[in-house]
Structure formats: structure tokens, C-alpha cells
């Protein structure tokens, strides 16, 4: 394999792994469920994308590459839907996002303070 492709591949794998760990730290560190979704978003986009792109370059151009691209596609399509379903479930279940501002003119959205 070309040496430049090798370097690019390991670079992508390294960046992807780093973003996976950062996303994991975010899921642990951030204060409530709505903010933790952003940490999970990092895992789902940059972490998975980086690691899988690195693996794609490692594989060369074979059927393995296309399967990896399919996995990236599936995850990029499904993760926002799953996150949105979870956010709706959390709102419906009475968890209110803690924040500085409340929705400006959303009627019926309770005034949300940090206590749930």
C-alpha cells in the first residue's frame, strides 16, 4: 500500500479513537440527559466516521470497503432518529432540560429550572 495512504489511514483511526473516548467522557461528565446526547452525538458522527474511514483505507478497494461505507451510512441515518425519539420520550416523561432560557413563546412548556 502506498505510504501516504497508510499514514492517512492511521491518522483517521487515531482521530476516530480520540473522538470516541472524548464522546465517552462527555457522556459521563455532562450534567443531564439532554446535554449527554451531545456527547453521544460525537461518538456517532466523528468517532464512528473516523474509525470506519480509517478501516476503509486499510481494506483497499474491495467488498469490505463498501460494507464499511454501508455501516457508516446506516449509523449516520439512524442515530439522529434514535436521538430524537429518546429526546421526545424524555420530554414526554417529564424531564425538563436545565438551561438559561426557556422556549421563547412555546405555550405549555413548563418553566424549566434545574430541578426536575
Amino acid at each position: 500500500m502506498d505510504i501516504a495512504l497508510e499514514i492517512l489511514s492511521w491518522g483517521l483511526l487515531f482521530v476516530g479513537s480520540a473522538f470516541l473516548v472524548i464522546g465517552g467522557i462527555g457522556v459521563v461528565r455532562l450534567p443531564d440527559v439532554f446535554t449527554r446526547m451531545h456527547g453521544a452525538g460525537i461518538i456517532d458522527t466523528m468517532g464512528v466516521g473516523g474509525v470506519m474511514s480509517g478501516l476503509m483505507i486499510q481494506a483497499g478497494f474491495t467488498i469490505v470497503t463498501i460494507k464499511l461505507a454501508l455501516i457508516i451510512g446506516f449509523i449516520l441515518y439512524t442515530s439522529p432518529t434514535a436521538t430524537h425519539a429518546l429526546a421526545r420520550a424524555a420530554l414526554h416523561g417529564g424531564v425538563r432540560p436545565r438551561g438559561d432560557e426557556t422556549p421563547e413563546d412555546e405555550s405549555g412548556q413548563g418553566n424549566s429550572s434545574s430541578k426536575t
Binding site: G23, G24, V27, V33, R36, M37, A40, I43, D44, A82, L86, A89, A90, G93, V95
Partner: peptide
């Protein structure tokens, strides 16, 4: 919901 999020991740 935290648990669902973590299990999804």
C-alpha cells in the same frame, strides 16, 4: 433516559 442513551452508545 440516561440508561437508554448509554445503551444506545
Amino acid at each position: 433516559y440516561d440508561r437508554i442513551l448509554a445503551v444506545n452508545a
